[in-house]
């Protein structure tokens, strides 16, 4: 709340969230409006308000559940929660942080591997070409996720409608792109 409490040391996950993102889970009074409005709360193991509740207790087992949850990967960052939250608890940046921590601590939920595979394939494409190479992305994603048959029907018709190109578009300054990845993503993972 006030600066006078700044000297309090909070080593819990919620404490780190507050420090890194400025989001205070303590402000949440569990009204559930976020969960009610969240388009993917039904897909989540813990809907947003429940996820926050687990952070509020600060118990190690609850924090573990959060980092290993599917919820953090199902979040679409559609921002509906913050648009309606009466206490303005900014959930999307908190979700971003939890995803980063989940990867860093190697606690990613196995059921979410598709989503991460897609993200990684996506970023690979950018790292290589500077732009998204959709054809390459689909192939790359399929090999990473082993979903070889998914969307096989879609690709030819996309191609026919001129929506898919066989060759990637490449930016000129590819070194700059590599540099950006080296300084950010690759830096963190090592």
């Amino acid at each position: 709340m006030s600066e006078s409490h700044n000297h309090l040391v909070d080593n819990s996950l919620s404490g780190k969230i507050k420090k890194e993102t400025g989001v205070s889970v303590a402000r949440c009074y569990q009204c559930g409006k976020c969960s009610a409005g969240c388009p993917v709360s039904v897909d989540m193991d813990y809907p947003p308000s429940l996820l926050i509740r687990k952070l509020q207790t600060g118990l190690p087992e609850h924090e573990e559940q959060v980092l290993r949850s599917k919820s953090i990967w199902f979040c679409l960052s559609c921002e509906m929660c913050i648009a309606r939250c009466p206490m303005e608890v900014d959930i999307p940046p908190m979700m971003d942080y939890l995803r980063h921590e989940s990867i860093r601590l190697k606690k990613v939920n196995p059921a979410s591997k598709n989503i991460i595979s897609f993200h990684k394939a996506f970023l690979d494409s950018i790292e290589q070409t500077g732009k998204l190479y959709e054809m390459g992305l689909i192939v790359d994603y399929k090999t990473r996720s082993f979903n070889l048959m998914q969307d096989v029907m879609l690709a030819p018709s996309m191609f026919a409608k001129g929506k898919l190109s066989i060759l990637p578009e490449v930016i000129k300054n590819r070194r700059n792109m590599k540099q950006i990845f080296k300084n950010t993503l690759k830096n963190k993972q090592k």
């Binding site: 969960s35 809907p47 429940l50």
Partner: peptide, 13 residues
């Protein structure tokens, strides 16, 4: 009316 029941796993109601 779209709400959630926070006593029931924050399920959508």
């Amino acid at each position: 009316v779209v709400g959630a029941d926070t006593l029931m796993n924050a399920e959508t109601v």
